[in-house]
Amino acid sequence: QRLKVEDALSYLDQVKLQFGNQPQVYNDFLDIMKEFKSQSIDTPGVINRVSQLFKGHPDLIMGFNTFLPPGYKIEVQT
């Protein structure tokens, strides 16, 4: 199903909350998305960066997966 702006805002809030004591992580995530927007990095590049940034946070990774196009997915380490 199609995600809306509200879903994106909600996800950003989730990231901000989880890293409340590490605001740099949230800022890094915003930077990754800005680089994608400016086409400095492509979808696999985003996946690579986000999987490193959110390592150890499976809920954030699974949430991020919902924004990826078909055929793309970050594997969660269990």
């Binding site: 995530f29 915003l30 998305m33 800005k34 924004f67 196009p69």
Partner: peptide, 20 residues
């Protein structure tokens, strides 16, 4: 665009970053 939902997330992130 190949990843419309990711573009949407990026747009929202850019606006959020600009506002903060």
């Amino acid at each position: 665009l190949p990843a419309p939902q990711l573009v949407m997330l990026a747009n929202v992130a850019a606006v959020t970053a600009a506002e903060s």
